[in-house]
Nucleic acid binder design. Structure first.
Length: 260
DNA sequence: TTTCATGTTCAGCA
DNA sequence: GTGCTGAACATGAA
């Protein structure tokens, strides 16, 4: 489910379907997904209230409830869905917010790497977690400043949520592919033009993915994400992909387009 | 049966 | 302090 574009679509879905609906009750089916809060605290903040705003920072979601916020991170397999009264909660539902109108907000998460909690303000939460600027908001100067500060391979830096928030394993591969930069290149050694490319392509790719509703089949034909499979080929030179492990994460690249 | 998975965090080591 | 590697978390799918 979750990198910035996927989370943004969830935010829009919640905003369109879930705001201004009075909450009747809350059902926590697996308290393991609660992060730093008790079931009682969740009841105290949610019961009888309504969500009034849906915001996002990187991969993190925030639903305004009363004077505070419910925080949601989708982890690896999490999803939030608004449902009508007639719908049956899916198999891996971990939390179910029941609205007075009969419908509900469902958090499902097979692997339970996601989490739900409470926060007073967005800025306090972002600071506590050490999250960098949102990948779609960060401007070129700050991007270059923060990325070039590190002496690590560029893929690791793009994935570091404290440098900037929102880019995950799949999109980092796409960004580097579009800029023809090898994922193991040292971040501090990149030229200004390469840094500008990374910033520009990052925002272009994330926006494009949101635009096609993260349906990779609808992405332009020169995108890696359309063809990110062992059996597929680089759309530029039609040669095979190379896969390597960086920080334990599978990394796709074209060794001919992305020279080390 | 084994391997892998769009994320985050932590221990251990150089 | 900086950076890297591997493991852990929980569970289904190929």
């Amino acid at each position: 489910m979750p990198e910035l574009p996927e989370v943004e679509l969830v935010r829009r879905h919640i905003k369109a379907m879930c705001l201004k609906r009075r909450i009747d009750s809350l059902e926590v089916l697996d308290s393991a997904i609660l992060d730093g809060v008790s079931i009682e605290q969740m009841h105290g903040e949610l019961d009888g209230h309504e969500f009034t705003r849906a915001e996002r920072h990187g991969k993190q979601l925030f639903l305004k409830i009363g004077k505070g916020w419910m925080t949601v991170h989708l982890g690896m397999t999490g999803n939030l869905t608004c449902m009508g009264a007639e719908h049956i909660p899916p198999r891996f539902t971990r939390l179910h917010v029941h609205f007075l109108d009969g419908g509900g907000l469902i958090y499902e998460d097979m692997r339970k790497f996601g989490s739900i909690g409470l926060a007073r303000t967005l800025s306090s939460f972002i600071e506590e977690r050490g999250l960098g600027p949102d990948a779609l908001n960060i401007d070129e100067d700050e991007f270059i400043d923060r990325v070039s500060r590190h002496k690590r391979n560029i893929k690791t830096v793009l994935l570091d949520q404290s440098v900037l928030a929102g880019v995950g394993n799949l999109y980092s591969d796409e960004i580097l592919f579009q800029c023809k930069i090898h994922p193991l290149a040292l971040s501090s050694s990149l030229s200004t033009m390469q840094m500008q490319c990374l910033h520009r392509e990052m925002q272009r790719i994330l926006k494009k993915s949101i635009q096609v509703m993260t349906d990779f089949d609808r992405l332009p034909k020169d995108y890696m994400l359309k063809n990110r499979r062992p059996s597929a080929h680089c759309p530029n030179d039609h040669g095979p992909w190379q896969t390597i492990k960086i920080n334990g994460r599978t990394t796709y690249l074209c060794p001919r387009c992305q020279r080390f």
